[in-house]
Design a protein around this nucleic acid. Structure first.
Lengths: 199, 199
DNA sequence: CCGTTTTTGTACCGATCGGTATTGATGAGG
DNA sequence: CCTCATCAATACCGATCGGTACAAAAACGG
């Protein structure tokens, strides 16, 4: 009972996501959010909690929407398919016309002052978890014979994520989609990079 | 004539660099700088100019010191040596014990609000210029027969920088030096990735 | 030793930061 | 139609932001 909300929670959350995506957590002011969302400050707090809480909700929505490839990649049948999904998905999300260029998991809070520190640490932990997940996936692939026994799953996972992060930074530089696609093709052509012996 | 300065300009600039490196441009407050540098605010302004100007000076010092490999890499005799210098140098600077993990060219201002926008654009332009420089270096290498005629210098340059950026992000995640070295070895083992035909 | 120039320290500037108290408008349930 | 819970809007909170005015202190040239 009582008065009903005058806006759609998820739709306005998408607008908040767009602002965080473009400006990062620390670079986004409350006034930026209220203006972009069309939601007054007290309504924003009542609906989404404080700035940190709002960011978390927007980030969840990011993982469920634009960056869904991150979660689905691990289910691909082969290590190559996993890698392809991850890298091609990274290019698509980092160069999507709706987005500002780049990936929120990287740009959201790569470095911060004291105020944004919890968010920075949260995102860093998420990236570490994603790297660990990929390493485990590659370990499984090696056990299944999908990757050669000489493969180094940990190094391979770091390698794939490094390229993914690099795509995000380059998209922030304004790199066009087709050039990043060509770069990914290049990286995939040498798959899997042998890793038994070191030079 | 007149009273002489009570501190060493370059030494205090190094301390400013450390703060910008750890917290980024926008995440760094004037009070953080004055505290870390041991220089009062008016002296800071008289010596280095405003916050933007101080960042620029600190960044110059970064390029001349910790990140000197970026400038020297291009002078290496072969494309492989250029790439090795770039990537191994990136690992070293991103995991240097004095630094906070990562590269200032990436972390300094990857995304910003309106206040940090000029610095963000400046760093982005610098990264674009560095990518263009590497592409030209690879074009020369191809002309000299150092790279196969089928090589794609532009994609190759993006690829190398992507890994370099990825190193920076992973160092910010806390990745240890030896693991990043193993990852670079992995990437270099497939050098040069063939790029004539696309799948 | 003195006068001048520069540096230093304190104290302050308006603007903006994230966050909230309060009041008036609104609409669902009875 | 009335009641009451909920939402919306203005206005405000202390703290901090980047940047500066001003006066005391210090060290150079003479």
């Amino acid at each position: 009972m009582g008065r009903s909300r005058g806006f759609d929670v998820d739709e306005r959350l998408d607008r908040a996501l767009a602002v965080f995506w473009r400006q990062g957590y620390e670079g986004t002011a409350l006034s930026d959010l209220t203006e972009a969302m069309g939601v007054n400050r007290p309504s924003l707090y009542a609906t989404y909690g404080n700035k940190q809480s709002l960011f978390r909700k927007a980030f969840e929505r990011y993982l469920d929407g634009p960056a869904a490839h991150i979660r689905t990649a691990f289910d691909q049948p082969t290590a190559l398919a996993v890698t392809e999904t991850l890298l091609r998905g990274a290019v698509d999300v980092a160069t999507t016309p709706e987005g500002p260029g780049g990936c929120l998991m990287v740009q959201g809070a790569l470095v911060t002052g004291t105020q944004g520190e919890p968010v920075r640490e949260e995102l860093a932990a998420l990236r570490r978890a994603a790297e660990a997940g990929l390493r485990e996936r590659f370990e499984r692939a090696r056990a299944e014979g999908d990757l050669p026994a000489s493969a180094n799953p940990a190094a391979l996972a770091r390698y794939v994520w490094a390229i993914s992060y690099g795509i995000s930074v380059q998209a922030a530089n304004g790199a066009p989609r087709h050039e990043l696609r060509a770069m990914v093709d290049l990286a995939l052509q040498a798959w899997p990079p042998a890793s038994g012996s070191s030079p």
